[in-house]
Design a protein around this nucleic acid. Structure first.
Lengths: 234, 234
DNA sequence: GCATCGGATATTGGATCCAATATTGATTAT
DNA sequence: ATAATCAATATTGGATCCAATATCCGATGC
């Protein structure tokens, strides 16, 4: 970060976002984006020097950001060989969804009994954004709003550590999720299911909400499985 | 790591262990040990320069190790303020055990149906070490053997990611677990419960094993809760 | 006396340089 | 031709130095 503005590359589409206060956070965001958008694809080795130069930072904050991503399961690491974008096998994907099932069921169950009006309204707002993005066909915006929708609900569980773990699991499959939203039929279904879940939450029907959201996940995982074998092509 | 042998401090009791191939891994091990043994106590700030000097490494590998520990929840981090040993509230502790309950129940259930003879024998060996350490009153050795016992069983689940998460959760409460083993009555109970679990696993009684191990955890958490308020005193 | 401001100090964040290890490719013996 | 060896190169690991930020503490005004 010797110069205020770097050149354009991985960091190119950094539209109107303002830069985080530390290089490390900046790099973290850019790396996440690069992975979730497919700019860096599963299995790709991460060359530190090239990437550091592209982002216009030194290798030090880059390496720390990579350690964070390693902890989140987005990249793997081999001593003296470097970091690689995690390549999820079909088994890995199923395992991630199984874990999410176990954790989210409990979180949603608790959230249903505790969620307040503000949180419900926040979820409704997120849902409105989901529908908006879906109508516009903006897959990325939809994924982001969708994430907000679910996280808002989960946070009502009062289990912050659990939510953090779920969020991490969620992120680890980001690279594979966009394919799901690409399909218009799936976008429709997501909207329907969200509406049903909101309805059940408003009525404090915990088990109903758990059931609907479990089905919601199941749909996603089967759809992703269908296209998985091999990395998601660019 | 300019000199082969550093001075004595956090790294002092590095008995007969051989040094890992990279400074970062070495630091990671030492930090974990320092936290679990109480050499670094919950809430303590981690001064990088002092610690780096004590371990005879530069701050670079230390910072990367701290990032790893941050991901595992053993330390917290605030930009420009540094790292602190995580201080678990009572609520946090309960949450960790709740998550473990959800994940381990499923893992044990699967493990019971899949565990092979070698894994069973490995668990039995670990259990023998647990009993040995308990008899000798060696709390640290007991904690380590105990960990091997449980991990051996969990690994039979065929869910490596889940096991990794459980291991991380396990580690995050290390600082508080030693108090449990300190009590001879608890040591006795642990041994009994392990034997019962092994027996049920041999008979492929999944639900029985799940039940016994759930009770096993419940005992531990209530015992730890009793002494928790405030950090575990040195 | 108390709060506020400002500078000195401590501590973390980042850049650069050097060392250690792995990878690659040419060379040679079989 | 093929496999093994070894040097050249690429890449990561680590140390040191400098910059940026926060913290601490005394001075100053009310």
């Amino acid at each position: 970060m010797t110069t205020p503005e770097g050149q354009r590359g991985v960091a190119a589409e950094a539209g109107g976002r303002r830069r985080p206060p530390t290089a490390q956070q900046f790099v973290l965001e850019e790396l996440r984006r690069a992975i979730t958008t497919g700019r860096l694809r599963p299995g790709d080795p991460i060359r530190q020097e090239a990437l550091a130069e592209e982002l216009d930072v030194s290798r030090v904050p880059l390496r720390e950001a990579l350690k964070t991503l390693q902890g989140e399961g987005l990249v793997t690491y081999q001593a003296h060989r470097g970091y690689f974008v995690e390549r999820l096998s079909l088994g890995d994907l199923r395992e991630v969804y199984l874990i999410r099932e176990l954790l989210e069921a409990e979180a949603v169950r608790r959230a249903a009994g505790r969620i307040g009006d503000e949180a419900l309204r926040a979820a409704e707002r997120a849902q409105a954004e989901v529908e908006e993005a879906a109508a516009a066909g903006d897959v990325l915006a939809m994924a982001e709003a969708n994430r907000r929708f679910h996280m808002t609900i989960l946070e009502a569980s009062g289990l912050p550590r659990m939510v953090r773990m779920i969020r991490t699991l969620w992120d680890s499959t980001d690279a594979y999720r966009s394919v799901y939203y690409g399909e218009p039929a799936n976008r429709e279904r997501v909207i329907e299911e969200h509406r049903a879940a909101l309805d059940l939450l408003r009525r404090r029907d915990a088990e109903g909400a758990v059931r609907v959201l479990a089905a919601h996940r199941a749909h996603a995982v089967t759809a992703i499985e269908a296209v998985l074998p091999g990395a998601p092509q660019a």
